[in-house]
Nucleic acid binder design. Structure first.
Lengths: 211, 211
DNA sequence: CTTTGTGCTAACAATATTGTTAATCATTAT
DNA sequence: ATAATGATTAACAATATTGTTAGCACAAAG
C-alpha cells in the first residue's frame, strides 16, 4: 500500500505537519484541514489526538519555548573559558541555532504578541534563564574590567545587542534577499560573513579584541 | 443621533480601523466583520468601498511601504553635515520613527514573508532608496577614513546593524517587558536608554567617538 | 416635482473552518 | 473464537467569514 505509517505514528505525523504550518503561517494562518492534509490523514484524526486546534498549538508553542530555553541554558555552561572565548562561542552558537530554526523568532514574537496569556510560560521558563545568562556575563565583564582587560558595560545591553544582531538577518530574510540580492555572492556566504561581523561588533564594543 | 459621520468619512473610518486591525493581527488574523464593527459601519460598506479584503489590505500595505520609504528618504537629506552628526541624526530619527510606528516592522516582515509577490513593490520602491542610503554612507565613511578620522567599514553592515538594533526592542516588546520588567524603571526610560546605547554602539564601531 | 445617482442597510448566499459522531477496522487479550 | 479496546473513516453539524444583492433614503440636478 501507499502507507508505511501503520499504527502509532499518526500522532507524530500530525505534530510534524502542525509544527511546519504554525511556524510558517502562525496560529490564525494555519488551518486544521491543511495540517491534516499535509500529514496525510483526515482532519478528524487531528481532533481525535489533540481535541482542538488550540490544544495542538499549545503543544507546538511549548516545544518551541523549550528550544528557546535550551539554547540559553547551553550558553551558561561554558563558564570555565575566558570571557573572549565565551562570547565568541555564545554569539556563534546563538547565530547557528537561529540559522537552524530560522522561523522561530518570528513565530515567538507573533504568538506572544497576539496571546499575552502565554507570557506566563515565558515568565517562569525563559526569564530566569535570561537572568542567569546576564548575571553570569556581568560578573565576567566586571572581573575583566577590574583587571583593565575590557570596558565596563551593562551586560543586559550586550545580550540585547547580540540577540538583535543575530535575529535580524532571518527576520528580514525576504527583504534582504531582494534588496541586497546581487550585492552578496550567496545566502550562505552572507550569513557566514554576518555571523563573524556580529562577533566583531560585540568584542569591539567591549574593547576585547586586542588584549 | 450618535453618528457625526454623515456622508463621506465612512471610507476613512474603514481605512483607519483596517490599518489598526491589519497591523495588530496581520492579514489572516484580521476579519472584515471585525474591521467594520471597529469602524462602526456594516461590513457591507467595507465591500462597497473596497470590493474585497485583499484590495483593502493592498491599500494598507502600500501605505505602510510608503512610510518605510519616507524614513529612508529622510535620512539621505542630511548630506551637508559631518559623518558623526549624520549618523546620530539618522540613527535617532530611525529609532523615533519605529517608536511612533511600533507595529510596523512585524507587520512588514510577516506580510512579505507570507506573500512573496509583494516583494516586487519592495524591489522597486525600497531597494533603490536603501542603495542610495548605503552608497551615501559608504562615501562618507571612505572619505573620513582617508583622513584617518574613522575605521574603514562596510556601509551595508552598518545599516544592517542600525536597523537590527533599533527594531528589536519593539519586536520583542512583550518578551522584554516580562523578562526585564523589574530591571528598568519604565518603558520610556528603557527606550531612551536603548536609543542612546545604539548610537554609541555604531559610533564605537566606526571609532568616531573620540575625534 | 421628478429623476438620478450615491451612500447605505438588511438580508441572503457560498464557502471555509472547526468540531462531532456513529460506524468500521484491526489488533490484542481472554 | 470472541470480546474489548483503540485507531480510523466518512458523513454530518455549527459557526465564522467573505462576498452579493435588492431595495431604501436622501440630496442634488433637471
Amino acid at each position: 500500500m501507499d502507507r508505511a505509517n501503520n499504527q502509532r505514528d499518526t500522532e507524530a505525523l500530525i505534530l510534524q505537519a502542525a509544527e511546519r504550518e504554525f511556524l510558517e503561517k502562525g496560529y490564525t494562518g494555519a488551518k486544521t484541514t491543511s495540517i491534516a492534509e499535509a500529514a496525510g490523514v483526515t482532519h478528524a484524526m487531528l481532533h481525535y489526538y489533540f481535541r482542538t486546534k488550540d490544544k495542538l498549538f499549545e503543544k507546538i508553542l511549548a516545544d518551541k519555548l523549550d528550544k528557546l530555553g535550551e539554547i540559553m541554558f547551553g550558553v551558561i555552561g561554558n563558564t570555565g573559558l575566558p570571557l573572549r572565548e565565551r562570547l565568541v562561542q555564545g554569539i556563534e552558537g546563538h547565530f547557528d541555532f537561529i540559522a537552524a530554526n530560522p522561523l522561530l523568532p518570528r513565530f515567538v514574537f507573533n504568538e506572544l504578541h497576539s496571546l499575552p496569556d502565554r507570557l506566563e510560560a515565558v515568565k517562569y521558563k525563559i526569564a530566569p534563564l535570561a537572568k542567569a545568562v546576564i548575571d553570569n556575563l556581568q560578573a565576567a565583564i566586571d572581573e575583566n574590567n577590574r583587571r583593565g582587560k575590557c570596558r565596563h558595560v551593562d551586560a543586559r545591553m550586550i545580550v540585547m545587542d547580540i540577540v538583535s544582531l543575530n535575529i535580524f538577518p532571518f527576520l528580514a530574510n525576504p527583504l534582504i534577499s531582494t534588496t541586497f540580492g546581487t550585492l552578496f555572492e550567496s545566502r550562505e556566504a552572507f550569513l557566514e560573513m554576518r555571523k563573524k561581523e556580529n562577533v566583531r561588533t560585540i568584542l569591539d564594543k567591549l574593547r576585547l579584541d586586542y588584549e
